Amino acid sequence: MQKQTNGFLTYLIFGALSGGFLFWTFGELTEAIFTTNKNFYWDELILKKVQALNFPGIFPLMKGITFLGSIGFYLMFIPVVSFVFYKKRRYDSLTALLGSTTGASVLNYVLKLHYLRLRPTLYFKITESGYSFPSGHAMISMAVYGMFFYLLARNAPSPLRYYYILPGLGFPLVIGFSRIYLGVHWPTDVLGGFIAGLFWLIITIIITEIIFWRKR
């Protein structure tokens, strides 16, 4: 029991330090964007380079990938996964997934209204509305897919757990890339979304583990 307690405390401390580092990084990024404006050159340069990519089928491919980070997809994905967790009596997993999704969505909405950054409209390949920073697709996909694959890893046999890291990070990364290619976000919008989404993911995991640790 003492060994489990020590491992749990180490887990929480590592999570808290990681969350603190991400919080600091997000602050540095926003200062660069909204105070010094030094990032705008790199934003435009990267966006143009990404949009210059061209091979058969890339546009519908990017639209399909970006759909995986949309509200329309989550309205199908989240209820199905939640129902499975409920039927299996995995109430901790159900709480974690819903908390991660809902919290990231609300936080993204608040951050967009706070920063009020305009989208790069001159680069649009699809029509998009709303404010730009941080990218909702990048932020929420990091929270949703990160939590989903974390939960799968936690309940998987030890040798297989690390294999869930790749899709847990891979899905958000390709979704964020699709947003840049489609011209609806600056690269720093996507980066900010990743940082904020990972921060909320870690916070949700820590809270869930604390709530359900004694019940396991």
Rank of each mutant, 00 (worst) to 15 (best):
L53I: 13
F199L: 05
I71Q: 10
H185V: 11
Y74T: 05
S135F: 14
E28P: 01
F177Y: 11
G69L: 08
Y164Q: 09
R154F: 14
P187A: 12
G69T: 03
N39K: 11
K3T: 03
F83T: 05
S93D: 13
P134K: 15
T25C: 08
I140N: 00
L118C: 07
F21D: 05
E128K: 03
K215P: 10
R216D: 15
M1Q: 08
A143R: 00
E31L: 04
I140S: 00
G197N: 00
M76C: 11
V80W: 02
I175A: 03
F34T: 12
G176D: 14
F26T: 10
T101G: 01
M139T: 03
Q51C: 05
K49V: 05
N155V: 07
T101H: 04
A16I: 14
F67D: 03
N155R: 15
S82N: 02
E128G: 01
Y131S: 04
W24I: 14
F59N: 02
G7I: 06
L113E: 15
K88G: 02
T5Y: 06
W186E: 13
A16S: 12
T204N: 04
D189F: 08
S132M: 10
W213E: 14
T30F: 07
D92V: 09
F194C: 02
I203A: 03
N54H: 12
P172D: 04
K49E: 12
G168L: 00
L68T: 12
H114A: 15
I71W: 11
I13T: 02
E28L: 09
Y145F: 00
F133K: 09
L9C: 04
W213T: 09
G7Q: 12
F212Q: 11
F149W: 10
G19A: 09
I46K: 12
W24V: 15
I65P: 01
T30P: 06
K3A: 06
L113T: 15
F67A: 08
M1G: 04
A153M: 12
W24N: 13
P79V: 01
I140T: 04
V106I: 14
P172N: 05
F85Y: 12
S158F: 12
M139N: 04
V84Q: 01
Y115L: 15
A196I: 02
L198V: 01
S129N: 09
F212L: 14
M62Y: 11
A104T: 00
